[in-house]
């Protein structure tokens, strides 16, 4: 039962939250975690892959557009199709998953056209997932964002599907959990902050759970997400 999980954190040229994810998983949560170089193909041994935040290839063309062609991404769909394998894309990692078509939709520039770094509140919309089983439905998590292109967009059909299938996991809200326009910090459609794929093993989210791990950093709510995965995999 006390077996540690194996997390693999993919390092693309320009990733810059890779070390933070390693710290969160290894030092704070005492799991096994290591970096995976973007040219590596050997990812079978991991339970969960983390696509960290940063600016892969400088985000020079579009966020995530070049990274999705990295070698490691060739094996990632196979990985995702296996049983009990999970992927979390955070910020730039989310953008890469979108570009790779592993999650639906795309990212636009924030509505104010500026990079925004601050603590935001998000509600947990679906707790019946490997990523949120530790949370209560509607629970408000305080987790920071840091991005210039986090304005999630998808067409109406996709949105309806996401809603119908309960694949919207996090939404921007105010401190009382109300979904308001004002709380929609980057202008995302339907206040979306995080979504999951149909199979339910790939999560993409703009807020950085690895930055909300200890109270000195302002919040410990990020732990709930990591701990949910750990619990889920251990139970299954």
């Amino acid at each position: 039962m006390n077996k540690k999980l194996k997390f693999g954190i993919v390092v693309f040229p320009g990733s810059n939250c890779d070390a933070d994810c390693l710290w969160a998983l290894k030092d704070v949560l005492n799991q096994e975690a290591e970096f995976i170089w973007h040219e590596s193909k050997n990812i079978k041994k991991y339970d969960c892959l983390v696509l960290p935040g940063g600016f892969s290839y400088g985000d020079y063309l579009r966020s995530g557009a070049i990274a999705r062609f990295a070698k490691v991404m060739e094996s990632i769909s196979d990985f995702a199709n296996k049983k009990n394998k999970f992927i979390i894309g955070i910020c730039n990692g989310f953008q890469i998953l979108l570009e790779a078509g592993l999650l639906p939709g795309a990212m636009l520039h924030n509505k104010n056209l500026k990079f925004i770094c601050e603590y935001v509140n998000i509600t947990v919309e679906n707790t019946n997932t490997p990523f949120t089983n530790r949370c209560a439905k509607g629970q408000v998590l305080k987790i920071p964002i840091a991005h210039g292109e986090g304005n999630y967009y998808c067409d109406e059909r996709t949105l309806n599907t996401l809603i119908a299938k309960d694949k919207i996991i996090f939404r921007y809200c105010d401190s009382n959990g109300m979904i308001t326009d004002e709380a929609n910090v980057n202008g995302s459609i339907y206040n979306i902050a995080g979504i999951m794929n149909t199979k339910g093993n790939i999560l993409g989210m703009m807020p950085h759970p690895e930055r909300a791990m200890i109270k000195e950093l302002g919040s410990e709510d990020g732990r709930l997400i990591w701990q949910s995965i750990i619990d889920y995999i251990k139970k299954s």
């Binding site: 810059n16 939250c17 070390a19 933070d20 710290w23 969160a24 935040g53 500026k114 990079f115 925004i116 770094c117 601050e118 920071p144 840091a146 950085h208 690895e210 930055r211 791990m213 000195e216 950093l217």
Partner: peptide, 13 residues
């Protein structure tokens, strides 16, 4: 300063 990532590296207390 909201435009600067002031939290990356998870050390900013």
């Amino acid at each position: 300063w909201r435009q600067y990532d002031h939290m990356v590296q998870t050390n900013t207390f």
